[in-house]
């Protein structure tokens, strides 16, 4: 089994260390054949990344995406899970599979579909809005609306996986808990708020951490939908990193990736502290 451990080390653990080393050098695309003949530049890449205007915008956009997107995804996921667990007994499997479909669908195909859904004149969304008399904007071309559009798409695409975890959590709560609440005369909202929700704490911690980690790295949505535009209004940290890679600035790209990594670690740590069992 040792060879397989070696394979794992070569393609997973090795690059992690490799990229840490690279982030302190001036490695560029032309050094590709001779990766060991580059110069160390200390923290220059980190300084350059943190003072870069595009990177600043990317950091702001990523924060926007995470702060709005994560709670929204979790609320929709929890709502769907409660709906399936308490209300929809018949055809439950059908609903579960249906809600999960976007999760297993290629992001590229989703982008093709959603560009139609969001298209200004003959898109699905603006047509539906037209029925109720709203004149929808050109979603993806608007600096104001491009980001909310991507967030809506991300919620649509991702809530299914958190829903499955919430469902497992809800099914682990014994019926007797709710029955006790009913006897005490608590309303269904009170039972949910004061009995079910506290018991779901570990599940909420888990889904918020995994969703948060995923959303902090968000890349594919802007990459396939907007290329970061209009005017960098949807560029994310991962996308800025990829752009630097594309320009051949490998050292700068890896330092940006490490900054993101540190932020992810810190955010995850904070989530653990906030949601830890009391």
């Amino acid at each position: 089994m040792l060879p397989f451990v070696a394979l794992f080390l070569a393609f997973t653990a090795g690059p992690v260390l490799g990229s840490f080393g690279m982030s302190f050098t001036d490695i560029k695309q032309r050094d590709l054949r001779t990766p060991f003949s580059v110069n160390g530049v200390g923290f220059d890449n980190y300084v350059k990344a943190l003072t870069d205007e595009t990177f600043g915008k990317a950091a702001f956009n990523t924060a926007y995406f995470v702060i709005v997107g994560v709670p929204l995804t979790l609320v929709v996921a929890l709502g769907a899970a409660v709906l399936l667990d308490r209300g929809v007994k018949r055809f439950q499997a059908l609903f579960k599979v249906g809600y999960y479909l976007p999760v297993v669908t290629s992001i590229v195909a989703i982008a093709v579909i959603w560009r139609f859904v969001l298209s200004p004149d003959n898109g699905l969304l603006n047509t539906v809005l037209g029925w109720v008399g709203i004149d929808g904007p050109n979603w993806l071309a608007s600096k104001t609306w491009a980001m909310p559009s991507l967030i809506a798409m991300a919620v649509w695409r991702n809530f299914g996986s958190a829903m499955i975890i919430f469902l497992a959590g809800l099914q682990g709560i014994p019926e007797s808990v709710e029955e006790a609440g009913q006897i005490d005369g608590a309303s269904s909202w009170q039972r949910f708020r004061h009995l079910i929700l506290p018991l779901l704490r570990p599940t909420i911690l888990f889904t918020s951490v995994t969703t948060g980690i995923g959303y902090l790295q968000f890349f594919e949505e802007p990459f396939v939908m907007t290329q970061g535009g209009p005017l960098d209004s949807t560029i994310s940290v991962s996308m800025a990193t990829y752009d630097q890679f594309g320009f051949g600035n490998y050292g700068l790209a890896t330092s940006m990736a490490y900054i993101l990594f540190v932020v992810i670690a810190v955010v995850t740590f904070i989530q653990f502290r906030l949601l830890r069992e009391k």
Binding site: V5, F8, A10, F11, T12, A13, G14, P15, V16, G18, S19, M22, L32, R33, P35, I213, L216, Q217, F219, S238, T241, Y242, F245, Y250, A253, T254, M256, A257, Y258, L260, F261, I264, A265, T268
Partner: peptide
Amino acid sequence: LFVLVMATLMIPGMVTFVPLFVLVTN
């Protein structure tokens, strides 16, 4: 080894992306 496996689960793909590209190209 187990800790290492779990640690790599948490590392963003972008971190390994560039060195992996250099490795595979070389």
